[in-house]
Design a protein around this nucleic acid. Structure first.
Lengths: 334, 334
DNA sequence: GACCACTTCTGCAACGTTGTAGAGCGGGGT
DNA sequence: ACCCCGCTCTACAACGTTGCAGAAGTGGTC
């Protein structure tokens, strides 16, 4: 049913190694021999056994991508771009869900999928620098700022500046009571911390007071958490005239809660998010947001991994910055 | 850096095979030997080489899931459930994107990932029964009704009945000019055809005329397509009082277009979708929809694959039906 | 004619694992 | 005292592939 080099070799009347040479594009094969072998390959529908090849060569042509959850739109969109970018290198992508749990992230990073993949792109939520240091070295690229001083390559965006800019946009619209949704007390929220820092910087630069009552935390960053946080802000009577949500799903939940409370967006409350997910382009109202260049993030991550695999494994860890832009839509008044 | 059975064996002072036996849970190993081996394994942080194991055993513990696009929420949510269900069998899931292109689907099905995966769960958009018949047999489970009489196991939901029921719900609300969005002329739209059939059946049963002008096609089923189709319906002056969108992203696009046209949902136009994606629970208004039991679909697909792998590979192809329910929300008036 | 360089092809060994067969040992039944 | 059985462990071969070393053939140069 499934054929091996040996079968092809017998059919073409050559040695196993010659078939291997043809398959691998070795130059010194006579054209007619090559043709005979290729014909036999086609007839038998031969495909190389990747496990055997890996065992021999140490490469599988598969890389792993580990994200917290696939049905978070940001990660789904990112995954798509990474699969596309990896395809250009001839790589297949094996996708893992970590659930954002530290243990699962450690398992993935230390290589449960190991020996099966050439490298790993990991988007950590809970992993620590010590966890990373203790690994025996699957080539790895990290996404985001969760692990700031680890030994691995990273692709990041400038969260602080981006958060400052989008907050500043709200201020320039004349908003003065600007709430933030998505703060996290745990040490797991690296992005949360940085975006909060940007928010705070923008307020300070504009001479606005930082009011703790305007900052709502969210255990996770799903729509339901955003809605709950918004409802919370509305009931405490702090009456914000704008909300910076630390990601788009939070913002979509907040939009929903504002709608339920009978408040108009952007007239009564302006809303901005972060991530530029597809949903925000079609919500009512459409959502203003920070749009990280996901395609670029994916491309950079794959390139870093490729360099790491081809080149010097002991090269110093690099952190590349991907660009972003502000995407202003209806939720801030066009 | 990376250790093998041999290294563990030397450290524990036993043979390679004994270590293998311990790793594989073989019973007849003296407790103290087992302890020594386990200690050595822990000290060296040994992990089996999956490629070598596969080469020897013919199993990798990896299955592939191929979907058209990961950033379509329905597939992302489904992927999540499949990863979870597969984990119970100790499987890792390798996710592939086909883009819905027939060639890519054929490549995946015929096994580019082949030899690396034990089986495949495929959600085909363009694949034909002939394509399938010509395959040499990676164990496979298909999702959906695209290939209706192929040789492979399938998990489906009853699209026709579900579409009839949700249309019927609109009729019972008193709506009479019910539009449909998502029809497809190409032979790729198996789901489209079945949902259109259910829609038609419901109209006929209620004695309503089928009006071609009320049926809008959509090249793909994204938000933008739904918005465009809805705008089209509004400009032709057919004035629908309800819309059945063949999936939720179409419906979210339609909601957006209705909002832009100044029409109220559900007062002026009731809207229903299909798939029950997360977004629809937080949109303004929230979206009534057909909710397929995705968890069940995932579980059934994985079980079918497991049976196929363990049992008789020549067993006749089975088609299992997964349940669904109607999820009625604001877009049909609570 | 001897030598060399290059092309074309081949056989062998090895990658890390596990199935098979069987060796060595001790205990229980006769 | 003998045999047999079950437990514990081991050696060997094989899974399909490719790197290496080299054989055989071809043609060019002195």
């Amino acid at each position: 049913m499934r054929h091996r080099l040996k079968d092809v070799a017998e059919r073409a009347g050559v040695s196993v190694k010659t078939v291997s040479n043809v398959v691998n594009g070795y130059l010194h094969v006579r054209p007619d021999t090559r043709a005979r072998v290729e014909e036999a390959i086609a007839e038998l529908n031969y495909r190389p056994n990747l496990s055997a090849r890996h065992l021999r060569k140490g490469r599988t042509g598969v890389i792993a991508l580990a994200v917290p959850e696939l049905d978070i739109p940001y990660f789904a969109e990112l995954a798509r771009h990474i699969v596309t970018a990896a395809a250009e290198y001839g790589w297949t992508v094996l996708i893992d869900q970590t659930g954002g749990r530290r243990e699962q992230e450690r398992v993935v990073a230390s290589g449960i999928t190991d020996h099966l993949v050439d490298g790993l792109i990991l988007s950590p939520l809970a992993l620590t620098a010590e966890d990373l240091a203790s690994l025996d070295g699957t080539p790895m690229v990290l996404l985001g700022e969760r692990v700031e001083h680890g030994p691995a390559d990273r692709v990041v965006i400038d969260n602080v500046t981006a958060a400052r800019e989008i907050t500043d946009h709200l201020i320039r619209l004349g908003r003065r009571r600007i709430a933030a949704i998505g703060a996290q007390r745990t040490d797991e929220g690296a992005s949360a911390r940085l975006r909060l820092a940007g928010y705070t910087e923008a307020l300070r630069a504009a001479g606005l007071a930082y009011d703790e009552a305007l900052v709502a935390s969210a255990p996770a960053w799903h729509r339901a958490d955003g809605a709950a946080a918004m409802r919370g802000l509305l009931t405490t009577g702090v009456r914000p005239d704008a909300v910076f949500c630390f990601n788009d799903t939070l913002a979509l939940g907040a939009l929903r809660a504002l709608h339920e409370a009978g408040l108009r967006v952007p007239e009564d409350v302006a809303v901005v998010g972060f991530d530029d997910i597809e949903d925000g382009r079609f919500s009512v109202p459409t959502l203003s947001t920070v749009a990280p260049d996901k395609e670029q993030i994916a491309r950079l991550a794959v390139e870093l991994l490729a360099n790491h695999l081809d080149g010097d494994r002991a090269a110093p860890a690099r952190a590349l910055k991907a660009p972003y832009r502000l995407e202003l839509r209806e939720s801030t008044g066009l």
